[in-house]
Computed example of a mutant assay.
Amino acid sequence: MTAGRFRDLLAAEWIKLWSLRSTAWLVGLGTLAVVAFAAQSSMDAYQSWPGFTAMEKARFNPLDEAFSGLSASLLMIGAGGLGALTIVGEYATGLIRTTLVAVPARHRVVAAKLIVVAAVTLVTGVIVSAGSFGVSAAILSGRGVAVSPGDPGVLRVLAANALLAPVAALTGVGIGALLRHTAAAVVTVCAALVVVPTFFQPTVHQWLNDLYALVPFYVWRTCLGLPQVRADPALPTVAGAWAAFALWPLAAAVVTLIVVRRRDV
């Protein structure tokens, strides 16, 4: 297939993605909701600051107000659900048959879909991360406790926050390709990416810690989402956390490719 034809595939996947009503709602309202959470949390901290104890002020992390666990959960659920719907919807409507008749090279179709989903959710993640940080910093600067992107560890936190969206979305595509059922795919995405990891805690069993260190939400919460990584052998390292972030979308892409190529439509 020529480069021109692959561009046509990308254009087709772009049109199909935005033809889903859920896309605009999830991207638009999801972005506004996460930024609004950051503003509300930061405003609460701003108003409560005079009543904080000296120890609370010393331990205060402004990035927790910009991007909380709840915000991360919402972002991953929304992006993961969007990723699942992009492929489940095609099977539900039968559009996948038309697509594969027009383009028998299934791996090209999968590649185009993954690229478009990754690009859209990456841009969304960047907007969410930058917007949440900017709003929070503007509010907390009134108390003199805001941080800047140049402070140690801040850029890593912002990058990790932005990458939560494409990691979740591509994982959703893989799960959607496996299950081919809207409700089952969305529930599985939520459980795998958010619900189960919220119960993860470091334990005395290293094999469990190694397993937890493969979960994106867990490594974000204990490592990448913190400006200073805690020196705890039970917690994932920065390198290991980035590897986990890369592993999930890569595995999802492989699963999607295998499933679409081997299963009948």
Rank of each mutant, 00 (worst) to 15 (best):
P197W: 08
G131V: 04
R262H: 12
A234R: 11
V27M: 13
A183H: 07
L74T: 09
R97F: 01
Y91D: 14
A92G: 11
W207I: 14
T203Q: 10
A45E: 15
G125C: 02
W220H: 15
A119S: 13
C190Q: 05
A231W: 00
V173T: 08
V109N: 02
A130I: 06
V195P: 02
V120K: 04
G134C: 03
T222W: 09
L32T: 15
G30N: 09
G131F: 00
N209E: 10
V110N: 01
I87V: 15
V117S: 04
V35L: 01
V135D: 07
A36L: 12
A72T: 12
A130P: 05
V260Y: 00
G134R: 00
G125V: 00
T31Q: 02
P166V: 02
L170N: 03
L17Q: 14
G30P: 02
A36Y: 02
F217V: 01
A138V: 13
T203R: 08
A168P: 01
I258R: 06
A112D: 05
V34S: 02
G69I: 02
M1W: 12
V126K: 00
A184F: 04
E90S: 11
M1Q: 13
F60P: 01
T53K: 01
L226N: 13
L226T: 10
A191F: 12
R230S: 11
Y46E: 15
V260D: 04
Q40C: 09
T86L: 08
L122W: 00
S48R: 12
W220C: 08
V35I: 15
M1I: 15
L140T: 01
F217C: 03
V103H: 09
F37D: 09
V229D: 06
L122S: 06
G142F: 10
P166N: 07
L179I: 11
T237M: 05
A168E: 03
T31I: 03
Q47D: 15
A102E: 12
L85F: 05
I15C: 12
G69V: 06
L100I: 13
A252Q: 01
G94Y: 02
A58E: 14
G83W: 04
P216M: 07
V173I: 12
Y46Q: 15
E90Q: 13
A11C: 11
G89M: 08
A45F: 11
R97E: 10
T53V: 05
I77G: 00
A239I: 13
W220F: 14
M43N: 14
S22K: 10
A241V: 04
L75V: 15
S19E: 15
I87G: 06
K113P: 03
L10A: 14
T2W: 07
A54G: 03
A146P: 12
V145D: 04
R59C: 06
G174L: 08
G144V: 11
G78V: 09
R156D: 05
I127Q: 01
F200L: 14
G131M: 01
Y218F: 08
R7Y: 11
M76L: 09
G174A: 06
L20K: 05
R180T: 03
G80A: 07
L20V: 11
A177C: 12
T256C: 05
L193F: 08
G89D: 13
M55D: 15
R108G: 09
A168I: 09
G153Q: 06
A72P: 07
V215D: 14
